[in-house]
Amino acid sequence: MRKTSGTAVRISGLGVVRGSGRRRVEVIRGLDVVVPSGEVVGLLGPSGSGKTTLMRAVVGVQDNVTGLVEVLGRPAGHPSLRRRVGYVTQAPSVYADISVVENLRYFARLLGASEDDVVRSLADVDLTPLADRRVGVLSGGERSRVSLALALLASPELLVLDEPTVGLDPVLRRDLWALFRRLADRGTSLLVSSHVMDEALRCDRLLLMRDGHLLADGTLAELLARTGTADIEAAFLALVEDEHPPVGDDPHDEETGR
């Protein structure tokens, strides 16, 4: 199933410190990963494991980053990447006081996208009937689809989607995953985070994160074979226990022990 066409994201020795002043916390340390292009790569991990932080480093809005983050052959945040990478933040980032189509047209002008792109993006997320509705009156799921539509406008080569399917019903979730698949078939690389483990089934490749580092990186089949488990949730727990044997398990032993 893997197409070895190239590398979308290459990260080595990544470290991220979040917050400022006295509230600084080291959130990611020593993370290495390669995201191949043209695939749907799932980024899974519990709440607070650093998924959003990793994505922010990839799109180049995260400050206090050390190590190497290379996106489509350029350093993350390089000006030439701003048209080639689409980012959907975890909370829908859209203007609530203007209409759906006004949001799209604004970003289309910034990205140099056309009115056709506006129409296509609206159709892709199934929002054409709501185009003239004010975003502020939309439901949470509709709003997050507006946010996704904005990222589709410029047909980016890499899409970084932070929990794009949270709060959506099963039908919409299926439709969106079908859309992600179509985009990948056209050659788009996707990095999609989720903490719904069953969405792992839809991904070509999985990155399992915990506490600021990678637990595992591979296809679902590889992970199941490696851990001898039957589903991704069991595989995750097995990997966690490998790292921290349950006896005397102390979540802070990395800092305090050794």
Binding site: V59, G60, V61, P79, R82, R83, V85, Y87, T89, A91, P92, S93, V94, Y95, A96, F107, L110, L111, G112, L150
Partner: peptide, 13 residues
């Protein structure tokens, strides 16, 4: 607060 500034900063604006 709405996250739109962060999003704008990922575009060519």
């Amino acid at each position: 607060q709405s996250g739109t500034l962060e999003r704008l900063m990922t575009t060519p604006v």
